[in-house]
Each structure stands twice: as structure tokens, then as C-alpha cells.
Design a protein around this nucleic acid. Structure first.
Lengths: 111, 111
DNA sequence: TCAGGTACTAACCTTTTTGTAAGTATGGAG
DNA sequence: CTCCATACTTACAAAAAGGTTAGTACCTGA
């Protein structure tokens, strides 16, 4: 989130879901709530710091819900809100596109 | 483009269209070819450096086509390839989502 | 000969993002 | 007592992205 005004819907959406991890976290939560540790293992390559950072941000955006179970050892579950679900749905075609062109993409020249 | 392998289609797609500008440039080219200067005015807020940098990258990915007219003053037109079109199409739902929730997004808390 | 319009290019710097590694808090189990 | 699992937190560093400013090359027409 950097801007306050956007030139178009895509501009706004990219600002919300932008970055390396948010879309993947959303994706991982697609099929239901997950604990912090489960997410950590599910989203391959993410560090604990980035995960919590992104989760906090997405929570503040109203995309994910955080449920704390007062136990020891602690248990915290993250799940998608309605808003998060709607965004996830909007991302499906993009995911399909990536899937379809995966080989092409992997063969693309790197900087 | 940072990775060589992806955990899912969305992962790959985000890697291709990631960053602040690519989606917007794609969007701007939706309705047809544009010259460098036209793009510059069309994609609000972008600097010439970022524009050319992103265009070059997208050209190398096969998303946009660059057509040079040997004239003075110079004229260069950028347009979407088939690949670029397909990506643009996949971005439509995301754009719609952003449009639909624009007010909510603008009211989101900033860091 | 000199300004003008177009599409870049280059150097330098600042900001943002991401990564790494270590440390904290909790209460029950042994 | 000490260890364990879990969910963070902190401090620091590196890397990537983005921004600013000035400059180049080209022919044309005044």
C-alpha cells in the first residue's frame, strides 16, 4: 500500500496483492485455515519474518482472519475472510495463466 | 524474474507481472500500439527510466513487440504480442476486483 | 548554425523489500 | 528444575526496486 489514489482497478489490486508473497499466502489459505507453522511449511521458501509480516499486513487489510487459541504451546490459525476469498477468486485466472505457460516462463531470459 | 522453478502457476505469473509497473503498462497497451511518449503520458507517474526498463524486460519476455520507424524525430511503437494479450486477459478479473473494491482499498490503513 | 522534437542512456542516490540469525515467552511433561 | 514446542520478535545486513537529473543522437526546418 503506497498510494491513496489509483488510475484504475488493476493499479489498486496490484497495490494490495503486490510483493513476492501475498498472493502465495492467499493461495495457501484457499482450502481452509492453517496454523502459522503449517503456512510456514506450505509456502515454500518464505522466512518466518516475512510470513508474519505479510500476515499482519493482510490482516490489517481485512483479507485474513487471525484466531488465537489460548493454549501452551500456542496455537494460532489464519483463514481467509470474505474479502480475501473474493481476491483469491480474482487471482484464479492469473494462476491458470501461469500454469498454462509455466514452461515458457521457466525458459524466459533472466536479467 | 528471479526463480527458475515455481511452486504453482500463480507463483510463476506473479514473477512475470510483478513490480509496480508491468501490469499497468500491459493495461495501457490493451487497446492498441502506443509510442514511447504516449505510454509515458498514459501510465501516470512513471519515469522515463522505469518505462524503458520495464518495456525492455517485457520485450525480452515476449509480452510486447517493439516496432521502430526510421524517421527523424524517431518513432517507436509498442504493442502486445499474443502472449501479452493472454496475460492481459488473465488480469481482467483482478482489475475488476480492484475496481469493485476501490473505495475499500483507498480506505485501507497504510504502514 | 542552431533550436526542436523524440527516444532513449548514464550516473548517482534513496527507499523499499527481503533475508539471516538469534532471542523471547509460555506452561506442561519428564 | 530443565526441556520442549509453538509463535512470534529483534537487530542487522544485503539486495532489489525506484527516483532524479542531466545528457546523447538524429535530421529538419528556420
Amino acid at each position: 500500500m503506497k498510494k491513496q489514489t489509483y488510475s484504475c482497478g488493476l493499479d489498486a489490486a496490484v497495490d494490495v496483492v503486490g510483493g513476492k508473497w501475498k498472493a502465495l499466502i492467499l493461495w495457501a489459505l484457499h482450502s481452509g485455515a492453517l496454523r502459522f507453522g503449517e503456512l510456514s511449511r506450505n509456502v515454500s521458501g518464505i522466512s518466518e519474518k516475512m510470513l508474519i509480516q505479510q500476515l499482519r499486513e493482510m490482516e490489517s487489510y481485512g483479507l485474513v482472519h487471525r484466531e488465537v487459541y489460548h493454549q501452551v504451546p500456542p496455537k494460532v490459525e489464519y483463514s481467509l475472510t470474505e474479502f480475501g476469498h473474493s481476491l483469491n477468486t480474482a487471482l484464479i485466472p492469473l494462476g491458470d495463466w501461469g500454469e498454462l505457460h509455466m514452461e515458457t516462463i521457466e525458459a524466459l531470459p533472466r536479467p
